[in-house]
């Protein structure tokens, strides 16, 4: 099982590396989204209030993640999916996709953070907490979005479905992540956020476990 997962993750990485345009596209998407926000709010460095900075950051990460993960089940054509169906267990496939997509989302989030800090200023006071929250948020986003992209890939009008199916499901994770990151930006004592971190972790666990249990049924059809 573990070996299967590592092989599948390696496959995803190689595939991504071979089609660099997709990766570069999504990276450019983050940078342009941040830049558009910067121009639209008309803010100079440090001019933006902290809650707005925080909300804009997470919304951009959310949309980039939706776009990045949406392709995870459609980029490979039917024949190859059938091949995976024959050689790998569905559990290994969903776990490897979730892990790979968390890495991808984390890269996007870090890039977004970097660009945000450069052009909109960096108000974050507690870096460690902020980054820990990014890791947990990326995990939750990817678990939820991977499952939803699996569902949406079975239906036509994929892009709309991806958005309407994932947004309501992802909101608990998003709200938790936003409030923890608000605490981290204000530099509050970590003990304030512990409760919320645990709830975020619990929601992540619920979503991942349901995805793990349900994916075999989805994969079979």
């Amino acid at each position: 099982m573990l070996k299967e997962i590592t092989v599948l993750i390696k496959k995803e990485l190689t595939l991504e590396w071979r089609q660099k345009y997709a990766l570069n596209g999504i990276l450019l998407y983050v940078v342009s989204a941040v830049f558009i926000t910067y121009l639209s709010v008309g803010a100079k460095q440090g001019n933006l209030s902290v809650p707005t900075w925080n909300a804009l950051y997470w919304i951009i990460i959310l949309f980039s993640a939706v776009n990045a993960v949406a392709k995870s089940f459609v980029q490979e054509h039917q024949g190859r999916q059938l091949y995976y169906y024959m050689i790998a267990s569905p559990e290994a496939i969903i776990l490897s996709k979730i892990i790979y997509n968390s890495l991808l989302t984390l890269v996007l989030a870090l890039l977004g953070y970097l660009v945000f800090s450069i052009i909109l200023g960096n108000p974050v006071q507690d870096q460690g907490m902020f980054l820990l929250n990014l890791v947990l948020g990326a995990l939750g986003f990817s678990a939820c979005l991977t499952m939803v992209s699996g569902i949406a890939s079975k239906a036509s009008n994929n892009a709309t479905l991806m958005a309407i199916l994932s947004f309501p499901v992802i909101i608990p994770i998003l709200l938790m992540a936003i409030s923890i990151s608000k605490n981290a930006i204000d530099g509050l004592d970590p003990s304030v956020s512990v409760d919320k971190l645990i709830s975020l972790l619990a929601i992540n666990a619920i979503v991942s476990v349901t995805a793990y249990i349900l994916f075999p049924y989805l994969w079979r059809s």
Partner: peptide, 26 residues
Amino acid sequence: ARIGSVYNIFAFSAFIPLIFVLPRLT
């Protein structure tokens, strides 16, 4: 039926923390 069922269960598992846990934290 199959994909609907999968989403129904998935959504329900996100719905429970949404209405029972989150409103109590704020």
